[in-house]
Amino acid sequence: MEMTLTINGQSHKIDVADDTPLLWVLRDTIGLTGTKYGCGIAQCGACTVLVDGRPARSCTLRARNAQGKAITTIEGNQGRVGETVIAVWNELNVHQCGYCQSGQVMAATGLLSSNPKPDDAAIDQAMSGCICRCGTYVRVRKAIKQAAEQLQSDS
């Protein structure tokens, strides 16, 4: 079916099977490969993007249901929160293999956008959907706290 999606502020007219998940539209149709395939059933979070600012698993979200909404992928994660998160991620050398990190960064951006000062329980809640097999969780937690502090002191 034909549909129009707004991805990173740009409008894309596409024609895909009507059950196509947003993930595969991003990766195979548009060519934005930063969003990763990890499980296909919303269990690992590698495919996390923001839809109207809220984290969503693009592997189970049908593209057609994302029409009319603002889709933000890792490639378009600009803005104060996103840029701060990425800067802190790099500063703390959070990533290892990196394959899950697009999802981690997007989930963290979503969290800090809605909760500027998350405690450990809030971080557990928001981030436990994003599996990292390299086990970077210690640094992900630290980075979220540091980004929160930086965003607060900047504001």
Binding site: R27, D28, G31, L32, T33, G34, T35, K36, Y37, T73, I74, E75, N77, I86, W89, N90, E91, N93, V94, H95, G98, Y99, Q101, S102, V105
Partner: peptide, 28 residues
């Protein structure tokens, strides 16, 4: 000394893994 990692592009989506390879005429 602790140094910034040199495997870059992993926090902005630009790093290319096998999964991301796209070649002209490629089939999946």
């Amino acid at each position: 000394k602790p140094m910034p990692r040199l495997d870059k592009g992993k926090t902005d989506g630009s790093a290319i893994y096998t999964q991301d390879i796209n070649l002209p005429g490629m089939l999946t």
